[in-house]
Design a protein around this nucleic acid. Structure first.
Lengths: 129, 129
DNA sequence: CTTGACCTTATACTTACTATAAGGTTTACA
DNA sequence: TGTAAACCTTATAGTAAGTATAAGGTCAAG
């Protein structure tokens, strides 16, 4: 299977697939005589796994760990559990930060007339000592 | 005032201040005879403004626009209002994405034993077709 | 037989810094 | 007076996770 077909099937961009190969996140697939990459089911599965893991918010390095755990039949599910628990905590922190930013901005919005006048609580707040 | 003092006063790192100057986000301050940057109140105010705008989540380019609006006595507060409204929308989208990720991960966590066994709903989900 | 859609590589760009190297200056202290 | 720490300077490279571009080779259709 050629790279563009793999791209279609996995939902990844062909460039992204080459990029993952370049950083050794996935194995290099064999090549045809003309140099084109020829993917096996194995490689396609890996890329599909990556697609999903990335969508779940895991970083490339976390994906590396997850791929290794996936490949290891002696893995302890506790390890996966730990990794994911930490990721959920990260997400929580991130959400709280965003909520705080949103609240501050919304409060300021309510005080800014939003008309043709130059006076604006937002600018004032940013300029405040 | 020297750069490290400005850093202390604004809460920005000295390197960040030099970086902001290198991308023309702020005016280059005058120099002493020895080549050291000598900041005026003007420059310090700008940097303080940037610090706050960045903490509110504005990108460097949005900060550029905000700085211009701040400097413009004929600004229309509607412009600031629009910029901030859009930012709040961005934040909302981001929060929703994170919440969705969190929910999916939490659901999977509940199904993963988290013990010494290799079977794990998380890995299975990622590997699923 | 040529046009367009693929494929290849290498390189640069993106965001917003952060780190490093290699050197010059100033300040504190013995 | 010497020297060592703590500044300051610049230029360059690295980070995350791709995306874009250039320059070229290959393949299928009309």
């Amino acid at each position: 299977m050629k790279i563009s077909d793999v791209a279609k099937r996995t939902g990844l961009d062909a460039k992204t697939i080459r990029y993952y190969e370049s950083i050794d996140l996935v194995d290099s697939p064999p090549r045809r005589e003309n140099g084109y990459r020829e993917y096996t089911e194995q490689g396609i599965q890996q890329l599909g796994f990556l697609r999903k893991a990335r969508k779940f918010g895991f970083s490339i390095n976390e994906c590396r760990a997850l791929l290794a755990l996936w490949a290891n039949p002696n893995r302890r599910s506790a390890e996966v559990h730990g990794l994911v628990t930490e990721k959920v905590r990260d997400i929580d922190v991130h959400i709280l930060e965003l909520k705080s930013m949103k609240k501050m901005l919304s409060d300021l919005l309510a005080q800014c007339p939003g008309d043709d006048s130059p006076s604006c609580a937002i600018i004032s707040k940013l300029a405040a000592e």
